[in-house]
């Protein structure tokens, strides 16, 4: 993993300059203290000066009068799997949806703070939301393939954005995406069958393949295994481990074992607060905050 990141050394200064940060809280370094405000941050020396894929600063989300996210600041590093963890209703999914502006269409939702992708504020007025979602793909909680053929499902993104020239290139992208999602061998003979005919686990991998076809930089996953059986879950988890070789993954899960299996770092949410963040082992084995401890030991479910 280290080899993919060394080349980005020294980019922090540039990052600081390109951030269009309305609230002037642009210095990412100041957030790498062990404890700031209410968030316990585990020191992670190996990453101290590495570049960030995404970072968020003091994000607040209101749904009408409901203060769903209360000032969350967390970094996402390149080619890592970051797990957002916490009990249901803690705001982890809400936060995830903020990362690619999926909360935009929600009526009376208000998002404050900074969310930046490679130093660019994705909530900037000039930042087209299509670009955001193209660069930050997403896989939903329940598989949601379009009621079209498997081929059409994968080709949806490339066609939409004009990413390919001609049928052959498109075929190539479809095959490639399916291969990378580990689905090619299973479906190569039924590419023109409806995607909705596949099993739940296959549908979810189809959705991952669909996201890959857009060549995003980050893939967000919202409890991708919650509706799947253990075997399919296992397949998806293995897939996530593969995916991080080429993508950055942010995954929401309430399953601690899953977080332990797939993630490099964990951010623990509680009632809209980011409570504790750090390397997976550190957070789960050595939780500092009382709330994290209780969750990890199974007292909060």
């Amino acid at each position: 993993m280290t080899d993919t990141t060394t080349e980005m050394d020294g980019n922090v200064a540039e990052l600081r300059n390109t951030v269009r940060d309305p609230k002037g809280q642009g210095d990412p370094k100041s957030y790498r203290i062990s404890k700031d405000g209410e968030t316990t941050r585990h020191e992670d020396a190996a990453w101290a000066d590495k570049d960030l894929k995404m970072y968020t600063r003091d994000v607040h989300v209101h749904y009408g009068d409901n203060h769903a996210i209360k000032g969350v600041s967390v970094d996402v590093r390149p080619n890592e799997v970051l797990a957002l963890m916490g009990p249901s209703g803690c705001g982890k999914s809400t936060f995830l949806r903020c990362l690619n502006r999926m909360n935009d269409p929600v009526p009376n939702a208000r998002i404050d703070g900074t969310i930046a992708l490679e130093g660019e504020n994705i909530y900037d007025k000039d930042y087209d939301v299509v670009m955001v979602r193209l660069r930050i793909g997403m896989v939903a909680q329940a598989p949601n393939p379009f009621p079209k053929s498997i081929y059409e499902n994968i080709a949806f993104g490339p066609r939409l954005h004009g990413l390919t020239d001609g049928k052959e290139e498109l075929d190539e992208v479809v095959e490639n995406s399916l291969r990378r999602a580990g689905l090619w061998e299973e479906v190569k003979d039924q590419l023109h069958q409806p995607g909705t005919n596949l099993s739940g686990g296959q549908q979810q991998r189809l959705c991952i393949a669909r996201a890959i076809a857009n060549e995003p930089e980050v893939i967000l996953m919202d409890e991708p295994c919650s509706s799947l059986d253990p075997v399919s879950t296992n397949t998806i988890e293995e897939l996530i481990m593969e995916l991080k070789k080429s993508f950055t993954v942010v995954i929401v899960t309430h399953d601690m074992q899953q977080a332990e299996r797939v993630s490099d770092r964990v951010a623990y949410f509680h009632l809209g607060d980011l409570v504790e963040v750090g390397p997976t082992n550190a957070v789960i084995r050595d939780a500092q905050d009382q709330r994290t401890k209780e969750y990890v030991s199974g007292h909060i479910g």
Binding site: E172, R180, K245
Partner: peptide, 17 residues
């Protein structure tokens, strides 16, 4: 999971810029 080794060279590349 051997499929995933065929990564990287997406023809679309950085066409979005």
């Amino acid at each position: 999971m051997t499929d995933a080794t065929a990564q990287g060279s997406a023809p679309g590349g950085r066409r979005i810029d």
